[in-house]
Simulated assay, not measured.
Amino acid sequence: MLTGATGFVGGAVLTQLMQQPDLAIRTLGRRITVKLSVNTSANVTHFIGEIDSATDYSAALCDIDVIIHCAARAHIMYDEVADPLAEYRRVNVEGTLNLARQGVAAGIKRFVYLSSIKVNGESTSVGSPFYESDSLPAKDFYGQSKAEAERQLIELSKETGLEVVIIRPTLVYGPGVKANFAALMNLVSKGIPLPFGCVTQNKRSLVSIANLVDLIITCIDHPKAANQVFLVSDDHDVSTSEMVREMAKALDKSTWQLPIPIWCYKLVGKLFNKSEVVDRLTGSLQVDISHTKEILGWKPPQTLQEGFKQTSASFSSSKN
Rank of each mutant, 00 (worst) to 15 (best):
W256L: 14
V165A: 10
R280F: 01
L258Q: 00
P259K: 06
N180L: 01
I220F: 07
Q257E: 13
T255A: 15
D252Q: 14
M247H: 05
V199D: 09
D237A: 15
Y173K: 04
P223S: 14
A183I: 07
P223M: 15
Q201E: 12
I192F: 15
S275L: 05
C198H: 09
P193H: 10
G269E: 05
K178I: 03
D214V: 06
S275P: 00
N227I: 13
S254G: 03
M243C: 15
N180Q: 02
V188H: 02
A179I: 02
N273H: 12
N186Y: 14
M185W: 07
A248W: 01
L281Q: 06
I217M: 03
D221V: 07
E276L: 10
T200Q: 07
V238A: 09
V164Q: 03
L215H: 03
I217P: 01
H222Y: 07
D252I: 02
E163Q: 14
V232N: 09
W256Y: 14
R168M: 06
F272M: 10
L194D: 04
V199T: 15
L258A: 04
T255E: 12
Y173N: 01
T282G: 12
T170D: 01
I216R: 05
G269H: 00
N186D: 14
H222K: 02
T255M: 15
V188A: 10
Q201C: 01
R280Q: 08
I217C: 01
A179L: 12
F181I: 14
L281E: 06
P193Y: 10
F272R: 06
T240H: 08
T282N: 10
R245S: 14
S239A: 11
M247Q: 07
G161A: 13
V268I: 12
S208L: 05
V238C: 12
Y265T: 00
D214L: 04
C219K: 06
V177N: 04
V188D: 03
Y265P: 00
Q201S: 11
V244L: 15
Y173L: 02
V164E: 07
I192H: 13
V232T: 13
L162Q: 11
A183T: 12
Q228C: 08
K253G: 12
F196K: 06
P261C: 03
L206K: 01
K224C: 13
I209A: 05
D214G: 00
M185G: 15
H236G: 00
E276Q: 11
T170S: 07
H236V: 07
V165W: 11
G283H: 07
S254L: 02
K266W: 13
Q201L: 05
A210N: 11
I262M: 11
F181D: 05
C219I: 09
G197V: 05
D234E: 07
L215W: 06
R168N: 09
M243P: 11
L171S: 13
